[in-house]
Design a protein around this nucleic acid. Structure first.
Lengths: 137, 137
DNA sequence: CATAATTGCTCTAGCCACTAGAGGTTCAAG
DNA sequence: CTTGAACCTCTAGTGGCTAGAGCAATTATG
């Protein structure tokens, strides 16, 4: 049985975050010591590692809740898990696309800035005047 | 003079967001009608367009505050504005890099999923077992 | 075994950039 | 003059934590 601090060290999830996940219902309320301190089993550690891994991959708490529910019904098709992962992948790709457009616009703006005073500064001017932009955003 | 609703239509910034920007000090507190309703001038509209444009490019409120301060001192060097824009560009690039790693990891996970039940599902297994991953994250 | 340091507990509030809603007032059209 | 849309302020909620107060339990040291 691990204390919350030991669990934290082993998973890399901070102590308040572990308590937060419990509050959010991702981790079940766990056994307590005589003095009301949480005691975690190996199973709890594995579930937390699962959560952490999913968070690292950018899944939302709500999606993780769904993934846990699916993993608890091993006879169900894994269609659900696939769908969640593919939807997330699509979100990630959308974000990348949007950020790349920003990147190019910002590159263009800073590369044009050759003035030494704000009057000439392309950064400020570009922000003031949308007409100086290449595309919509 | 424009009402807040007209200003909203012309800039594409929602009414509560305009009030929020005023509260945050990006827009100065503005003239009011007899009945305490906000009335905006062309100058106010231009400033709001500036703010909107900067937000669209992903600048934080605090950075926009700084950019406005710089644009109000046209004799100062535009070094500051350049620095803010370059720092933001660097943030955007970092985000893109991180998202691309996620993208590849997710692609790998979903492409390996050929099982029909959760027991075989690579999505669930990959999340349970970090050892199945290619690199650190 | 006493004490001190560390770790744990709960509860509340803060972060960012809005968004939603309640409950009331003002304005413009007909 | 009435109706209905738009406006006002204020509070609370979003997501995923993080920080801090004020206290209790556990562990390490003398």
């Amino acid at each position: 049985m691990l204390s919350i601090g030991e669990l934290s060290k082993r998973t890399g999830v901070k102590v308040p975050t572990i308590r937060y996940y419990e509050q959010m219902g991702l981790l079940a309320a766990v056994e307590r010591s005589g003095g009301n301190q949480r005691r975690y089993s190996r199973t709890d550690l594995e579930r937390l590692a699962f959560i952490r891994h999913a968070r690292d991959l950018g899944f939302e708490i709500e999606r993780i809740r769904e993934l846990i529910a699916l993993s608890n019904h091993p006879k169900d098709a894994c269609e659900g898990a696939d769908r969640i992962a593919l939807a997330h992948l699509s979100d990630v790709r959308d974000k990348i696309d949007r950020l790349k457009k920003l990147e190019h616009e910002l590159e263009r703006i800073v590369s044009h800035c050759s003035g030494h005073t704000v009057e000439d500064c392309y950064v400020i001017r570009a922000l003031s005047d949308h007409g100086l932009c290449d595309h919509e955003h």
